[in-house]
Each structure stands twice: as structure tokens, then as C-alpha cells.
Design a protein around this nucleic acid. Structure first.
Length: 274
DNA sequence: TCCTTATGTACAA
DNA sequence: TGTACCTAAGGAC
């Protein structure tokens, strides 16, 4: 589900299924995208791109002038399948289908036809994305190092860094032993450098595996001689959604709190300030 | 069958 | 800070 790794994976999967073959048949059974779908049917999908949690599908010429802009929000889901596609349910906002494959989009916050300048404006308001080759981590640090906001809030701010969500935020702060309430301006350049590169590695692995795993090999249950565990969101993590359970490293109870209307998770012992 | 929850964001006050 | 929006799954009845 949708943090940045999911969106980059979707960009790859849309391209694999539709960019090489014939132009897809485009429909919007749910109706909200019906006009645009009619315009796009028969136009080849030529490029796909992700920046943070934003997905762009480029239709038409090699340098598309028009893009489908998709943001999954909290609930959005994408499902791929082989043809014949089943009859769409009435919540399918966007379906692409060709001779071999179909893909359904449900529940997105955004699904809109935009121009190239409008797409550029979205890139301009997003921070660097650890999964993009053009990303400059110094741009993120400039904002962090000047901010009195907590590092937990800053990591979720897409203008600061694009693609990190609630899981990667909680997990990367744990992996670096940083108190989520520390003000951004107290983060050293060395700490930021380590966090950025760790996010790059973790999120690349997330794209490969289509899930979030953050537990280091030496901390797996097998390595620590403990019974295997299953986290109910599909990956192996240290603190995310583990409130009141014991920390895999120190055994202390994982804490949770509301921060800007999102659930924050951390270990008060492993993430104590020096 | 209803209620809660969720890996997100935008806008109003 | 609160609320609205989009959907589906799981748990309490």
C-alpha cells in the first residue's frame, strides 16, 4: 500500500503491462473520470513516472503533453490482472485493458488529466525523492536544519522529502536511534546523511519486494533465537503498529502517540537522546 | 449490520 | 486543529 516505494513500483508495472503493447482501452466504470477515459482510449501509453507518492501516466507522443495524474491517498488501490478482465465493480475509477492485461484503480484521492506545465508544478512543490536519480538530499537538509518542527513531522512533509510515509518514518527513526520529537534543526549533517542513504536502500528494496521490510538481518527472530513473527501489514518492522509490544532490541514497551493526526510509534529506550 | 481503522492530503477556521 | 474525501477489511454485535 501507498508509500513512495508502492508508487514507483506501480510506474514500473503500468509500463510493463501497457507501454510496449497496443494502446489500451480506457474506461471509468465509477464515472468520475469517464470524459477523460473516452479521450484516452486508443492513445498509446508512452511513459510512466513517479515522484514521491504521485504517479504520472503519459499518453501520446514520445514527449507526452498530457498526463494522467494519480494519487492514491490513504485508501487508493491498484490491481493488475490478465485478460479477460472481470466485469468491473462500480468503484473502479480507471481501468486500462489491452489484449493481454488489465489494471483497475480504486479509491484514489486524485485521478485527473493534466498538462505538462501542471505536472511540472507538482514536481516543483515536492521535495527530493530518495527513489529518483535527480534527488538532492541537501535540499531536504536545508529545510530540516532551519526548522523547529520535530523530525517526525518533517519526514512526513512532502515538501521536505517526497515519498516517506508513516511506516518508513517510524522505522528509519528507530534504525538511527533518533527521538521522533527532536527538532529538525538539532539534526546533524552526518545524521541526515545516514538517514537519507538508509531510506534510499530501504525504499529500493521496497520497490523490489513490493512491501516494507526494515529489520536488519542480525535482528530477525531467527538470528536472535526467538519464535518467528508476522506483522499484519505484510513486512518485518521494528516499531510500526507495535504499540505496547516489546522492542525487538531492548524489550521495552513500544510507545504510540498522535502527531499531526497520524499514529507515531517509537521505542523510548532505543530512541532516547544522548 | 454497524463501527473502526488505515501506509494521505487539502482546506477552513 | 478539525474535518472532509475516497474504499475495503476486520471485529464487535
Amino acid at each position: 500500500m501507498p508509500e513512495g516505494h508502492t508508487i514507483h513500483r506501480l510506474a514500473e508495472d503500468y509500463a510493463t503491462a501497457f507501454a510496449a503493447g497496443p494502446a489500451p482501452y480506457v474506461t471509468s466504470p465509477q464515472g468520475k473520470f469517464a470524459d477523460a477515459a473516452a479521450l484516452l482510449t486508443g492513445v498509446p501509453l508512452t511513459r510512466t513516472e513517479a515522484h514521491g507518492k504521485h504517479l504520472f501516466l503519459g499518453f501520446g507522443a514520445a514527449e507526452p503533453a498530457e498526463w494522467v495524474h494519480i494519487h492514491l491517498g490513504l485508501f487508493g488501490k491498484v490491481t493488475f490482472g490478465k485478460t479477460p478482465a472481470p466485469p468491473p465493480t462500480d468503484t473502479v475509477r480507471l481501468r486500462l485493458a489491452n489484449d493481454t492485461a488489465y489494471v483497475d484503480l480504486r479509491g484514489p484521492t486524485t485521478c485527473a488529466l493534466i498538462t505538462d506545465p501542471e505536472k511540472q508544478a507538482i514536481h516543483d512543490r515536492l521535495g527530493p525523492d530518495p527513489l529518483r536519480p535527480d534527488a538532492d538530499p541537501r535540499a531536504a537538509y536545508r529545510r530540516i536544519s532551519r526548522s523547529r518542527s520535530t523530525i517526525a513531522a518533517l519526514l512526513m512533509d512532502q515538501k521536505v522529502i517526497a515519498g516517506v510515509g508513516n511506516v518508513y518514518r517510524a522505522e528509519v527513526l528507530f534504525r538511527h536511534g533518533i527521538d521522533p520529537y527532536r527538532p529538525g534543526r538539532d539534526l546533524t549533517p552526518t545524521e541526515w546523511d545516514a538517514i537519507w542513504h538508509d531510506l534510499t536502500d530501504l525504499m529500493r528494496e521496497g520497490v523490489r519486494n513490493n512491501r516494507i521490510d526494515t529489520v536488519r538481518p542480525e535482528h530477525t527472530p531467527e538470528a536472535m533465537g526467538r519464535p518467528p513473527r508476522v506483522d499484519d501489514h505484510g513486512g518485518e518492522v521494528y516499531v510500526y503498529r507495535r504499540a505496547n509490544q516489546s522492542c525487538h532490541l531492548c524489550g521495552d514497551a513500544i510507545r504510540t502517540a498522535d502527531l499531526a493526526a497520524r499514529n507515531l510509534f517509537w521505542c523510548p529506550t532505543c530512541q532516547r537522546e544522548p
